[in-house]
């Protein structure tokens, strides 16, 4: 457990000293979201309708943007080899790196989400559920993304490949995440969607360490 804390600590420190990366994802999130009114027109009722969907899709793309660097720097400078040969189980090391990734990517997106909600004239009654759903959903995006990032290490055009591998797997999180917010906005119970998101999070908490460790081991062979 202390090894996991060490890894989270190191990655957070690295992220803080290169904080431009984290800002980039948030900036991308807000900017891309702000493009939609230009594309479809500023009609408030329409924007209100699509707000949860747009926020989720844009958040998903912002996470995608940040995935490539999750393991790549460690792979290129030899840290990943050392990590694999440390007494800490690789599965735990991966969880540590994913946690750090979520803290530096998912959490800032959640903090920026109310801004987009305002820009899209979203009914503020749904904001609580939107944030709760993102709190459950963005870790899923980091977890699934970590598998894609690990699998593409050393690949030609790895950065282009990650979206191709990861986006289809993101669809359930997108559906439940938007579903929860839509339900809350329609005055229905968001509980079923939130429960499904939580279940998906638990499933990925099991799958990612296993698949990620297999992927990293084969990447270093």
């Amino acid at each position: 457990m202390s090894g996991l804390v060490l890894i989270v600590g190191r990655d957070l420190r690295l992220a803080l000293r290169q904080s431009a990366d984290a800002w980039l994802a948030v900036l991308f999130f807000v900017l891309t979201g702000a493009l939609f009114p230009f594309g479809i027109g500023p009609e408030p009722s329409l924007l209100k309708l699509i707000a949860p969907g747009v926020i989720w899709v844009v958040a998903l793309l912002a996470v995608l943007l940040s995935l490539e660097r999750l393991f790549l720097a460690d792979y290129e400078d030899g840290s990943l080899e050392q990590l694999l040969l440390s007494p800490l189980p690789l599965e735990l090391a991966i969880l540590g790196k994913v946690l750090a990734h979520w803290l530096t990517t998912g959490l800032p997106l959640i903090a920026a989400a109310p801004l987009l909600a305002v820009l899209f004239n979203m009914d503020m009654a749904g904001l609580g559920v939107l944030l709760l759903a993102m709190l459950l959903g963005t870790p899923i995006l980091s977890l699934i993304g970590a598998i894609g990032a690990a699998l593409t290490l050393g690949a030609r055009r790895g950065g282009v490949l990650i979206p191709l591998l990861v986006l289809p797997l993101y669809i359930p999180a997108l559906i439940f995440g938007v579903g929860a917010t839509d339900a809350a906005l329609a005055g229905l119970s968001a509980r079923p969607d939130l429960m499904l998101l939580a279940a998906l999070l638990l499933v990925m908490l099991v799958i990612t360490p296993l698949a990620g460790a297999a992927a990293l081991r084969q990447a270093l062979e």
Partner: peptide
Amino acid sequence: AFEDQQRGYRAAAV
């Protein structure tokens, strides 16, 4: 996606 076909096999299998 890999120069080494073995890596392609393993990654795609995972």
